[in-house]
Design a protein around this nucleic acid. Sequence first.
DNA 1: TGATTTTTGGACTGATTGGTTTTGAATGGG
DNA 2: CCCATTCAAAACCAATCAGTCCAAAAATCA
Lengths: 198, 198
Amino acid sequence: MTTRGRPKSFCPDRALENAMQLFWQRGYEAASLQDLQAATGLSKSSLYQTYPSKQAWFVAAFSRYVAQRRALLLEQLAASTSPLAFIRERLLSVLEDDGPDGVPRGCMLVNVANEFSLSEPALVPVLQRATAGICQVFEQALERAVACGELSNAQDLAARASYLQCVMSGLRTQVKSAVPADSIRATVAVVMASLDCA
Amino acid sequence: MTTRGRPKSFCPDRALENAMQLFWQRGYEAASLQDLQAATGLSKSSLYQTYPSKQAWFVAAFSRYVAQRRALLLEQLAASTSPLAFIRERLLSVLEDDGPDGVPRGCMLVNVANEFSLSEPALVPVLQRATAGICQVFEQALERAVACGELSNAQDLAARASYLQCVMSGLRTQVKSAVPADSIRATVAVVMASLDCA
DNA sequence: TGATTTTTGGACTGATTGGTTTTGAATGGG
DNA sequence: CCCATTCAAAACCAATCAGTCCAAAAATCA
């Protein structure tokens, strides 16, 4: 059972990464097969041999994004000395999110949720788990904040985590609505002040 | 200068309302001209005689939505005895937002912002003004809350208004991510508690 | 009646969509 | 050498897209 025939001449992982970047930036509908070819560098034949459809490419790319993003957040949290600073930085990061064309890419989770609403049953559980995953990271951050004395109110951390995820999504939409950066920063300040209120 | 020839047999306002409902539910790209014909009841010829392109129909429909929504919010605020209750009700209303197909329509402002990011220059000022308009309503509500003693902290009302608009958008995205209703309600509770913290 | 205008509906364009199939060369292992 | 596999490029598919155009019917006014 060894490999026979001509070996793959491209890296499937790299191809998927590039596809992910494409779908992230353009969404599903707006990204055509031509775009997908250009992004991955693969021919149409190779595309359809790797995944059987555009949809399959998309769900693979989206899953990749979800895993990557959660991992990145956890990494940033671990690297941060102050949990609250971590949260503030994450919220403020929506301001530096421009894609190569100067248009904010946003968070692919938010993008996908808004493009499909709940009309694609296959995506619903993925979306649900992904959102919950992000909330978990925020909850972990809040727990640490309590542990290190940055946060006095230790109740309902899960609710506050979901609240933070909600605010994050809202900020992303505001950025895409051309809300001025000062306003975004002011909102972040309100949110940070709200975290420690009785 | 009297009217000559066959009179219009349809109501342009009704047609635009129906077009608005369509674009609200489906977005711009996903709504085809056939859908637009079906929704408005107009023939293709009449469609293109009323507005010169699909884009023109869309911006007209979107402008209509923006005006209508702001008016509705102001009306609800005026009808409400408690400004804070008004805010809570608006936030919770994201839970009752299903379209005819059981899929949440969301807020057309949020939908448009996420579909186009900032890639359509013609939409940017419309989006910006519309978002600011919603914020104004929330700011008015906060002012009233201060006036009637429901809110003790009277500082930075504009920032808190933008914050509420942000939360609203975030909640809409969470609904489209299949976040459970209980979690939504918990988040709303956190937000309401945050409004009055020092 | 005649002039004018809007109606509908269908034919038609040219481009693009996602997807299939074919072809023939490249590249390996057995 | 032979077989298996993969490659890229192109042809091809039916469907759909937004948009244009035309013709004939219908409805009003002068």
